[in-house]
Write a protein that binds this DNA or RNA. Structure first.
Lengths: 227, 227, 227, 227
DNA sequence: AATGAATGAGCATTCATTCAT
DNA sequence: TATGAATGAATGCTCATTCAT
């Protein structure tokens, strides 16, 4: 019995997550969630205190998992290239495992739900030190808003971009077949599967790109300052 | 009279854009739009054929402007570094002038409105050649899904990332004051204004980062292939 | 057509009034009102801006009619006995014609709907002078809270009391028959009809009672003051 | 243990009473009661058999206390003026001590809950003799519906009226201060406290008013009959 | 071109109550 | 006694859209 009760809350969470990720928070009704979770409508309010409550819990879980995946790596004292590679690897894994959560908590959900905005700010405020220290060790001017904006953006969004459109790709692949799709977009057919191998290469490519990009910024730093 | 009527349609578009960008498409009702546009509710259906119609027009305008800003640069035969710098410059300008449009058409609006998804695919399918050719000229393996994913992502999302959170920054700046904000986030206070100067530096930094990143990929290309 | 549209709002008002008076504001749902008024649910919000809006309009109409019935009489310069008789007569007529309105606006509706409490206070604040002046002319100490409380209460509630329970009487009369009811409560059977004659007598009895009561207070006034 | 359990039932009753009196029976939910009573929701059903059960018990307690306060006085053989004074005194005390109960059982709660209406009728039917006999002894025509209506109304509602609005007064007093309130309503400032002294004066004033009013009716009785 | 009444399905939430534990 | 999960109907209100004027 206890197991069923636990399952009820979890089923709501899972169903809502899947729906929010695909249709957007505002476009999903609690009726839809309840039906998908095989649960009475009232249970959503019972367990989460309302529709927003479900979203809140998603945001919390997402930030929690994200910082869990990233924080430790920055704090270890490994060579920068390894740190970058590991962070990228972890973030990719984080996205592979939690793309719905990310979609809902980071990308899709609009800004003007005050409760959610506040929650996000609280998370960011408490967790930003690790990365900043690492970039300082790397020789970057961490007080430079522009540099930090460029440098931090990559981790959070470049990877995200792939996952945001991954399902579009999969949609095309399914409807056209891999062969036709590869032809039409001038791509290597053998690569069009989003498996471990793909993401290993992806991590390496990105790490290379990123590390070389950073070198550029480090060189510039001394010669170029803001007027 | 004619002028007023034209204005009516435009007012609807503008009001809807502002609301969609801030609250998300699904969370905005036509009543809200009509009130903000000082227009009768029925006018939205009259001019746009419904709420989705307004969104469609936004998507169209956004893609139109985006490719207008980018296409020509790729096709000119300038040195790669200049092309990259110019593309980045243009994209930044495009974002500065159309961040609401971008928010609505690219970032926020969820996927599962078939009419919109189809529309987007149509746009992407017809316009992707320019960039691909450029990267080929640069010596990249454009058939490599991974490489292209990394390389194209930057233009669309890294810049986007800044603008997606710019208003969060501005919110913090307004409520805390620039000084306290700079201290708390360990940033250089004099840089915390998003003006021409800021974006000039942003473009340059990003171009440097990007160009150096690309070099890394070009070197690797010959030595590293997929197993 | 215009007639029908006006009727729609009026039908809502009438249906809601009847229901509120019998079951209490909180116990009546807008669905019930809509059904009784042969109107779509949304029309209640359309015309009144919500359920509370209907109540507000009732409160306004009730106070409006009440002061209309009473104000003028106080301000004319007739002998006190006539003023009292006329006020009582008018108030009784007001109750006969608007007992539902009174039930809803004065008696039944609970206090803790802030919008309504505020509205009521606004009415009372603007309209209390007429009666006060009259009692002053009569020789009462109008600064005496206790005296005013007793004296003003009669007009508003003693009459009200009859109407609050009139329908209980009618319920008993209908179910037991007039004869049995008269016997059981030791009352004169011929009087048990609430018609013009009844209320004429009621007005006179009450006026007599009231005027004699007042005389007592006037005499006392000089001899008895608060310590 | 037993004490706690008894307390649980009492806590529910008290919490519900306070809420019903302020917001009306229908506007209060059992959730709200349960929370205020620090009790599990199901306990309300357990102890009272449902929400109506709580109301029933209130009605019973209210009538019980009311007749307890009044009955005995009528039946003693004291001079009429003393009887009236004592009844008024007792009723005032009854109101001071039980205004919430009265609000719920007599004033606010609407009629159309059959179980409650029946209950009320049962009480009234069994207890009305005492007062009638007294008025007969006083020389009134107790078969005269009108006279009895006027005469009995005073006891139940004139006093009630004060208590129904007492908290409105207190609200004004608190928000404006006693001085400003007195000025604005042209009242004697020193009297604006509802303490023992106030109610002593109130009882006396009302008794005087009432006794003088009755005298008028007795005189009239012989000269004026219904046509 | 513009209005505003009207519709009916849908929204998130809360209701009183039941029941297994 | 006491708990808390569960139910299904009902709550007030808003939705996008239609249509006669």
């Amino acid at each position: 019995m206890t197991r069923d009760k636990i399952q009820a809350k979890q089923r709501i969470f899972d169903a809502a997550l899947s729906l929010f990720a695909r249709k957007g928070y505002a476009a999903v009704g609690i009726r839809e969630i309840a039906k998908a979770a095989h649960v009475n409508i009232s249970m959503i309010n019972y367990y989460f205190g309302g529709k927003v409550g479900v979203l809140k819990e998603m945001v919390n879980e997402c930030y929690n998992k994200y910082y869990e995946a990233v924080q430790a790596v920055y704090e270890e004292d490994n060579p920068p290239e390894d740190v970058i590679k590991q962070v990228i690897r972890n973030v990719i894994e984080f996205h592979r495992e939690n793309w719905e959560l990310i979609m809902v908590a980071f990308t899709t959900t609009p800004v003007e739900i005050p409760e959610i905005t506040d929650l996000k700010l609280k998370w960011v405020a408490t967790k930003h030190k690790g990365a900043v220290d690492f970039f300082a060790r790397l020789g970057l001017d961490t007080e430079d808003v522009v540099v930090m904006s460029v440098v931090r953006g990559l981790v959070t969004t470049l990877i995200g971009e792939h996952f945001q459109f991954r399902h579009v790709w999969e949609h095309i692949l399914k409807s056209q077949g891999r062969k036709k799709c590869a032809e039409e977009h001038h791509l290597n057919e053998t690569m069009l599967t989003f498996d471990d191998q793909y993401y290993e290469k992806y991590a390496e490519t990105l790490a290379t790109f990123y590390f070389n990009g950073l070198s550029g910024l480090r060189t510039k730093k001394t010669t170029k300052t803001r007027r």
